[in-house]
Write a protein that binds this DNA or RNA. Sequence first.
DNA 1: CCTTCTGATTGAGCAATGTCAAAACCGCTC
DNA 2: GAGCGGTTTTGACATTGCTCAATCAGAAGG
Lengths: 225, 225
Amino acid sequence: MYVTASPSIEDDVIVIPSRKRSIARQATVTIKPGKHLFLEDDPADLIYEVASGVLRLTRIMEDGRRQVIAFGYPGDTVGFPSNGRYHTDCDALVPTTLHVHRRSDLESAKGDPELHLRLLRAALREISGMQDHFMMLGRKSSIEKLASFLTVLSARVGEPLGEYTQIALPMTRADIADFLGLTTETISRTFTQLRKSQIIAIDHVNTVVILKPVALRAIAQGGSD
Amino acid sequence: MYVTASPSIEDDVIVIPSRKRSIARQATVTIKPGKHLFLEDDPADLIYEVASGVLRLTRIMEDGRRQVIAFGYPGDTVGFPSNGRYHTDCDALVPTTLHVHRRSDLESAKGDPELHLRLLRAALREISGMQDHFMMLGRKSSIEKLASFLTVLSARVGEPLGEYTQIALPMTRADIADFLGLTTETISRTFTQLRKSQIIAIDHVNTVVILKPVALRAIAQGGSD
DNA sequence: CCTTCTGATTGAGCAATGTCAAAACCGCTC
DNA sequence: GAGCGGTTTTGACATTGCTCAATCAGAAGG
């Protein structure tokens, strides 16, 4: 089903012992675009915190249908295990650096309680975010989905550009489609629709400027009736 | 937007100090059908483990669109907080008993590490389950969604009935629809379709018998091409 | 037993989104 | 700067699932 020749972490990733001596086992990793950090069903020995860059977490059905579970931005924790295994594939969209934690340190009762608590908080944040995503996947129209996506990204990683906010999109239209449960064609058409109504401008294919954030948010929440 | 006259827990729920003295603060609660355990944005002081019964976790948009986030069956943990608040409404479909934990005990670093770890495990299990649900919401057809739903329920709470498996459905068609991102009409039509192809039998509206579990699973995973 | 109410089913038509195909665009390499 | 491969955009058409509406079924109460 899935790629079975699981690459060892070492193939793709450079592990650098961290300078920080306060937390003994912490280390830093860098990963190049397109390279996998882990695959579904790999034993989940390591848990990662994104320090810089963007990750893509995906699941794939036997017939090739794909769902992008999440994009991992700085501050996000990825690699939550279940039954000791990863439950998504994970690769990098851009050069990405990560902090690494050994699962055994975090999950066992004897580990650093501070770290322990951080993992729990991250998991709870993750659950909350996923619940938002449910509403989006299950109940929103294509334009509401895309508007929601851009609104969230804007708040999270938007950069001021004059009086507007600019967003870099390191993922393809197909990635966005698989994240929102749509097709690339629908994503493309919906971008065009938002552009024509002057709510966004598309500078480059991968660079969006939000011209009317209020209107965008209104659409995201279904206020376009 | 949401019901603002938040009922205090005491209105709906009877808290009984637990007999188990080993875990000081644990208590048991019972809740009647239709009664709310908590509402979205309530301060999340308590975390619950379902002991018996079924809960429904929902989120509602301003315009009334609803997403059922999950059904809480025995063994499930509900009430994961984020920023100290609940992020869904939660009510009971049938009489339900729950074990109660104070959040402060679980989340702070000083709480019982054993319990602490159980909460983390529950959160990780939750994340894993939600990831499955993403694929379902984003990428499956209506019949695949319903087949997946019945397959999961069958494994989780199916009861043998002769050589077949019977499933009780304490939720309405509308609940199933809002769980799967469909409408009641589509759910109804899809049930009919599965019944006519002899894969399930509908004994009572709320009681389904799985006649061909293999076929059902095949449909659930997209094997109906 | 009859009425009533709510939820479930079925039908007909429609709208949103998917599919298939072609064209345009962008970044590379030669 | 011409050619190439992959991505994006656009168009025409098909299909899935939704909307609106009618009917049906089952539970509760008089």
